[in-house]
Design a protein around this nucleic acid. Structure first.
Lengths: 195, 195, 195, 195
DNA sequence: GATGAATGAGCTTTCATTCAT
DNA sequence: AATGAATGAAAGCTCATTCAT
């Protein structure tokens, strides 16, 4: 049992690793296997096909995101604090595990992704934003739009940090989330003269 | 000369088409050629390799973005109006040519993309935001961050419209750009009580 | 001991079943095992290799044919009656157990069949025909030829019934054996005018 | 054009050869290609898949049989003479090209054979036997039965000659066809006493 | 320039067999 | 005796690229 988890996990890690290093094309099953320390055939004990391996890998990591969001939502803090914490924790996750970030980016735009655009992390963020709108904290915008702006900004920023090697400091992060927060909340700002 | 342009263009269109329909994997050179109405070998008269074809295709379309931005910048209008127009025009371009949108998404996370993360449309947006910050209109944030937030939101929204088939109305669009604008500009909002 | 027979038998039946359903290619050892309700490794306790399994299965079923023929030969009836009974009983056996029919057909033309063309059911039919010739009942033809004509017509007819779903009635059967009988016996027929 | 026929033909011959030597299992596409003097990929220019290669090969050779039968039928000779000539010419064909004989045997009992039991050579033999029955020359038996008996005896005899290395002389052949002819024609023989 | 048949390395997947438990 | 996870050679097939015409 322990072993099974281990092997599956090793295959998951191997796949993420190869995709990170050489892109989707650079992860042939033979390499996935070798990298995981198993034989080619062994992968097919755990996954019916490459497609299933990729899809399970996606679901597994989506689950990890869900858990992060869940843990944020269960804290006793203000709506705004939750908003900031979710954004920041997801960002930190991606930066800590760039493999996952790259994999997600690749997966979403791939023939493996059948459900084009269920890319949000479960329905929880959906509910979170719906609550915000009901409370009058968040602008009344289509939930899907809020979702993609929120997630998109996390991905974008993490990619900046991870790939472009542009260091994103904590204060940068705060600024970014503030931009987002200000954007989705600010409704009545003092009029400004024409710029 | 005319012929050359025609054939090259046909190959470009064929490639975009196939990538849109079947993803990056679904665009083998043989199909690209057939779809373009030329022989397989002919493609190699115009492009040294598949990699070069893809890269030229990317640069060609990046140029189209640059021209859109350029045309916006040359108008005599306020900074804010330019901000809105650039966002909206780029958005419209992607919605009108979803092939290009998909191709960009695929390209950025592909082994073809050597310059990981020069995804901005030339340096013009860079300058545009620098100008905004200098003027005091835009929050003082790293330019790269502003860029990815700006471009990311366009991509995200266009994908929503094109793939998820969630209709994005003009009023939705305005809201989204307002969110962005409010986010990157708002500096002194009336204090709000704890939410 | 009982157990051993049971397991072996289960494996035999499983193999026949799979070959019937999906042809020789559709009977991998893993499926043979699963279908027989045992583990993959277990099959290798009873049979050294797939080749041996197949060969033993062949011999086992050849033995069943031999028993049928034997039982026919031991009856006290005329030569002709025996001829008809052997043909009919073998035919009935194949129709009742199409698995075996298909298996035989596949086996004979397979790399497993080392002794290309010992396809007769033991030497008994050989002797039966030799006796018929000595008695002057059967035309003097090479024994091997009589054998393949006899067995071939049984196979052909059974395949017709089982696969082609062309119903073969009892009267059809009689006609067929009569054709064979008339063929191998008739020596002096009334002259017929040119047809 | 010439070339195309040549390559296709070479692949056909290579396939027949390998199947003859090592059975259906011993004809992997890689060997088929090498044996035909072409690259692995080349085979797939001429045939969409292994299945199609096999099926085309079958149809090609079935056509050869049809031509042999046709040429026999067009001769001005008695029904009986045609009956004998068809049998003998088909037999000679198989003996001359044992590759084809083996291939047919393998094909008929294989997952490639979708039309289980259209194994007769076109409808011509069908018509030939129907004519015989109408004329009153042939016993009134289901046409399918006549067909399988006729073709089956040819296959059986050819296999005997080719594989079992039992020499079948011309006089043997005559005897065999006579057996068949006597069987399917003889209707009123002088009663014989109990044997 | 243009063609498309030919190439062959490399891909995903299968399966007879082994062996630690 | 029995298990079934693990193996890895080999299968069918794809595709970027070349080259004689």
């Amino acid at each position: 049992m322990e072993n099974l988890r281990d092997k599956k996990h090793a295959i998951f890690e191997s796949t993420l690793d190869l995709i990170k290093q050489h892109g989707f094309h650079g992860a042939p099953m033979s390499l996935v296997a070798k990298n995981a320390g198993v034989a080619a055939g062994t992968v097919y004990h755990y996954f019916e096909s490459k497609e299933q391996l990729i899809c399970e890998l996606y679901n597994y990591n989506r689950e990890r995101l869900v858990m992060i969001i869940n843990s944020c939502l269960q804290q006793t803090s203000s709506y705004k604090e939750k908003f900031f914490k979710i954004w920041t924790d997801l960002y930190k996750f991606y930066v800590k595990e760039p493999n996952v970030l790259i994999f997600f980016e690749q997966f979403i735009n791939s023939p493996f992704n059948v459900d084009q655009y269920k890319s949000d992390a479960g329905g929880m963020l959906h509910d979170f934003f719906a609550e915000g709108i009901k409370k009058g904290v968040i602008k009344s915008v289509k939930l899907e739009i809020l979702l993609v702006l929120f997630m998109g900004s996390i991905h974008s920023t993490a990619k900046l940090q991870v790939f472009a090697k542009i260091p994103v400091t904590n204060s940068d992060l705060n600024r970014i989330v503030e931009i987002l927060w200000d954007g989705v909340t600010a409704t009545k700002k003092p009029l400004r003269t024409r710029i």
